[in-house]
């Protein structure tokens, strides 16, 4: 096969090619950098925080940030109404947010992929029933549905995560089902069948690995959505309970001080904003790199 093998350039490896397309999207690279910083801060929280997130210093209630008039450098972003360091609480809060994102995405991806795989592979009545249930879930405003679920299960971080996973589920089911349906009639699947592969083998080993690219993109977007939903539930008092330094809960606690101490609401809000934007930018880059249809040239 000399004709085919001599090429002017050798094809790049998968990872190099991925990075080539990913790095073309400047926003995605910025998002990745910010995300890695947040991740490192969250992991190293006990080492990098100047104060404990829960110790209250009664001498410095509602201290402004260091750069504002009357601020102190030891409390760089100021303190809240009970004298806790906001910077330290935000850094510890990143742990919760990332943890929530991770758990929610894991839960909804695993269950969504399973359900979608079954629907897309077997089609027929199974498919119809599953998809109608998903349509019903989609018909509710997502936050409202999460609220109802938390109200039923009882407030708390774990229940909030379960509720958000369920709300996220239909997106993954639909995506998986569509990908499975387009893959399962392809020649390589039929070839596996002719070789004697059984249903489970075809579903999980043959078809599923080829459906992952769009799921990875969707997972990053769901990650940021989960952080946002968890913050919203926390703000409404249905998520993490005080004194947990969760960003949404921090916002809720600071509600009454909006007029006199702008920093207690601004910084948790900014933390949520920056994290969500960073992850969404990253997801955009992933889509560029993983979706062959969008590949330029």
């Amino acid at each position: 096969m000399a004709v085919a093998e001599i090429k002017t350039t050798t094809p790049p490896t998968g990872l190099a090619e991925f990075w080539f397309y990913f790095s073309r999207n400047k926003g995605a690279v910025i998002g990745l950098v910010i995300f890695v910083i947040i991740l490192l801060l969250a992991i190293l929280a006990p080492l990098v925080t100047p104060h404990s997130p829960s110790i209250q210093n009664r001498d410095v209630l509602l201290l402004p940030p260091a750069l504002a008039a009357g601020g102190q450098w030891t409390y760089f972003l100021g303190t809240d109404a009970v004298g806790r360091d906001i910077l330290s609480r935000l850094i510890y809060g990143a742990r919760f947010s990332l943890f929530i994102g991770l758990v929610v995405v894991t839960l909804s991806v695993i269950s969504g992929v399973l359900v979608g795989l079954v629907a897309g592979y077997f089609r027929g009545r199974t498919d119809t029933i599953i998809m109608r249930v998903m349509d019903i879930i989609l018909a509710f405003p997502s936050l409202l549905l999460a609220l109802v679920l938390v109200a039923v299960l009882g407030p708390g971080l774990v229940n909030a995560m379960i509720a958000i996973s369920l709300v996220n589920l239909p997106h993954f089911v639909r995506l998986t089902r569509a990908a499975v349906m387009s893959e399962r009639t392809k020649d390589y699947v039929i070839a596996s069948r002719v070789a004697g592969a059984g249903t489970l083998r075809l579903m999980f080993l043959t078809i599923l690995p080829n459906c992952l690219a769009p799921l990875i993109v969707q997972a990053t977007l769901a990650f940021s959505a989960a952080i946002l939903d968890a913050a919203a539930l926390g703000f409404l008092g249905m998520g993490a309970q005080p004194p947990t330094p969760e960003w949404g809960t921090m916002l809720a606690e600071a509600r009454e001080f909006i007029q006199r101490a702008w920093w207690v609401v601004t910084f948790p809000g900014l933390a949520i904003l920056i994290t969500v934007i960073a992850i969404n930018l990253m997801g955009d880059g992933l889509r560029d790199a993983l979706d062959p249809k969008l590949k330029r040239s």
């Binding site: 392809k186 020649d187 390589y188 039929i190 070839a191 596996s192 002719v194 070789a195 004697g196 592969a197 059984g198 083998r201 043959t206 690995p209 080829n210």
Partner: peptide, 28 residues
């Protein structure tokens, strides 16, 4: 056994050639 027309759809893109060839043996 069968060989298909389209060489680009006939092999599982996520599997190495070795895995593709040994799969029938693993199953049977």
């Amino acid at each position: 056994q069968i060989v298909f027309q389209n060489p680009y759809g006939t092999l599982n893109p996520r599997k190495k050639i070795g895995e593709i060839l040994t799969e029938p043996l693993i199953i049977n």
